[in-house]
């Protein structure tokens, strides 16, 4: 058993685990009750699923030049998904898309009350 076999087995495990995380995240996006909870599930394939799948690809390709591109993909996806998730979360809160009956503690709600009327996302 050479090291390429070991790398192949590791790659297979990474690919399966990454795809599994993506599947669970999709189930979460479908099942969870409100928008912000769904966003928590959405973070998962964007971070750990992507890292696992791309690690699997790197272990399978075994080229140093491909490694650079894959690392760049991870960095770019992480830095952009942060921007997107913050913008969507803020828009959800400002548009009143939060189910307050699911909140145990709400330390923003009373402060945000006098910002503006909830506009209601279309």
């Amino acid at each position: 058993m050479s090291w390429t076999d070991v790398a192949d087995v590791l790659a297979a495990a990474c690919l399966l685990a990454g795809a599994g995380f993506a599947l669970v995240a999709a189930i979460g996006v479908l099942r969870l009750p409100d928008l912000l909870s769904r966003m928590h599930a959405a973070t998962k394939p964007q971070v750990i699923g992507l890292v696992l799948v791309l690690a699997g690809v790197a272990l399978r390709l075994r080229e140093p030049s491909a490694l650079g591109i894959l690392a760049l993909v991870v960095v770019l996806q992480m830095s952009t998904s942060v921007v997107a998730s913050h913008m969507v979360g803020r828009a959800a809160f400002r548009a009143g898309q939060v189910r307050h009956d699911l909140l145990v503690v709400d330390e923003l709600g009373d402060e945000a009350a006098d910002w503006q009327e909830p506009r209601g996302a279309p």
Binding site: A22, A25, A26, V29, L35, R38, M39, A41, A42, P45, Q46, G49, L50, Q77, S81, A84, S85, V88, A91, A92, A95, Q97, A121, P122
Partner: peptide, 15 residues
């Protein structure tokens, strides 16, 4: 809402 759709679209992009 449109925000739910955009979250789903984001995850679809990751997939």
């Amino acid at each position: 809402t449109i925000l739910d759709r955009s979250v789903a679209l984001d995850v679809l992009m990751a997939v």
